[in-house]
């Protein structure tokens, strides 16, 4: 496993621990955590803080028969949680496979222009989640966005200004940042991107095309 250079912000990790993010961001973060021990430790720290907040928080009395009712629930549903099968050398970690319905070969890509392909993944909570496949050596159209965009590399690598992003790396872009990722030569670059508002592409045609492309 190569070393991850670009991590999630602590704010993102805290919000993920608190469970207040749109689902699209949760999927991207869980996918990164599946590859990154550094962020996993920070997430667990914020979850520990959540536990402390819960323990110190206000109590609200349970109903008088609550314990009996709960034991009845336990009897009624002797649930066994099936373990997720581990797939060796998968391109997509398990949380992403759950949304795709398989690994990278199961994605139903749609052309986006310039050889770039994308696949939207259905999530709740308002933000957008999509996979991008950028042919080696190709640039993604220069774009800004109204909100935050997280981009996680799963295969290949891209460069944006002075930074290089490879498998496991996350690029965080905000509304004021115009970025211009270019996929490196070699293999096609596959990224997962979560955006909390529709992207706005530069250039009239792309702007007109935007509603049709569903970006």
């Amino acid at each position: 496993m190569t070393k991850i250079e670009h991590h999630l912000s602590e704010q993102m990790l805290m919000a993920h621990a608190a469970g207040t993010l749109p689902e699209a961001f949760d999927v991207l973060i869980a996918t990164h955590i599946s590859l990154c021990d550094t962020c996993r430790v920070l997430l667990e720290t914020y979850e520990t803080l959540g536990g402390a907040v819960l323990d110190a928080g206000e109590e609200c009395a349970m109903g008088s028969d609550a314990l009996t009712a709960t034991l009845a629930r336990i009897e009624a549903a002797p649930a066994d949680v099936p373990a997720r099968p581990r797939i060796r050398d998968a391109v997509f970690p398990a949380p992403l496979r759950d949304y795709v319905g398989g690994d990278a070969d199961a994605v139903r890509w749609r052309p986006l222009g310039g050889g770039v392909r994308q696949a939207r993944l259905k999530t709740a909570g308002g933000a957008t989640l999509r996979l991008l496949n950028i042919p080696a050596g190709t640039a993604v159209p220069d774009h800004g966005h109204r909100g935050t965009e997280l981009t996680l590399v799963l295969q290949g690598a891209f460069r944006d200004a002075d930074d290089r992003f490879a498998r496991g790396d996350v690029e965080t872009a905000n509304a004021d940042l115009h970025h211009h990722p270019v996929a490196e030569a070699g293999v096609d670059c596959i990224c997962l991107a979560a955006t909390d508002a529709p992207l706005k592409f530069d250039g009239l045609i792309q702007r007109i095309a935007q509603p049709f492309l569903g970006i």
Partner: peptide
């Protein structure tokens, strides 16, 4: 307390926010 917190948080996401909670894979 941490473990129960994560179960309660996931229940809130599921039952109140009507979202799924993706769980990371063990390293």
């Amino acid at each position: 307390s941490t473990w129960i917190y994560t179960i309660a948080r996931n229940k809130r996401i599921d039952a109140i926010r009507k979202q799924r909670r993706p769980e990371p894979e063990d390293l």
